[in-house]
Amino acid sequence: MNSTNDTGVVAGPASGRTRHTHRLRGLAGTGLVATLAAMAATTLAAALARAAGVDFAIPDGGETIPLPGFAVVTGFFSVVGIVIAVALLRWSTRPAGRFVWTAVSLTAISLVPPLLSGANTATTIALLGLHLVPATLMIVTLARSLRARTG
């Protein structure tokens, strides 16, 4: 007896879209995990700096930056980075390289406000470091994820 059981699914145009959607969702998931890690690392670093005597007082408004503020701002800008990475994965032929270039440029621009804030030296140095901690974590993680999804 010669019988074949042909229950396989034929790949059509939708399978390419499904694979592409999976890549985008995978990148977004990786980015969200990295965002949580960046928020925790930045808040911990800010708490350690505060324990070491950094006051995080900004002279213009006289306000002191609260610890949860570091987490919120880190989370917001990390999500912006994820959106940029997803857009580049979707529309760029070289998403990892373009992402690194864009993210490093935006990180460099983000270093300007602490330098212009008029805060004391310890606060300025701590703020610069607190920009670099999450930026490094997010850039490395998202660039690796982009390379893995395009390679």
Rank of each mutant, 00 (worst) to 15 (best):
R90C: 05
R90A: 14
A87E: 11
S110H: 05
G97C: 05
A126Q: 10
M138K: 04
A143L: 10
I109G: 06
M138D: 13
I125Q: 04
P95G: 03
I139M: 08
S110Y: 07
P114I: 06
V112H: 02
W101Y: 05
V140P: 14
T121W: 08
R98G: 09
L88W: 05
L137C: 12
S110P: 01
A96L: 02
M138N: 09
P114K: 03
L111G: 15
L130A: 07
P95K: 03
G97Y: 00
L115F: 05
T121G: 14
V104S: 12
T141P: 02
I109W: 01
W101L: 15
T141E: 06
T123M: 12
N120D: 15
A122Q: 12
L127V: 06
L88Y: 05
I125T: 12
I125K: 01
A96S: 13
L137E: 11
M138S: 06
M138T: 07
L142G: 10
S92M: 04
L128F: 00
G129Q: 03
V133Q: 11
L130K: 00
F99T: 03
A96W: 03
N120L: 10
T121A: 15
L130Q: 04
W101K: 08
L137S: 13
I109E: 01
P114D: 11
P134N: 05
A87I: 08
T107L: 13
L142K: 07
A119V: 06
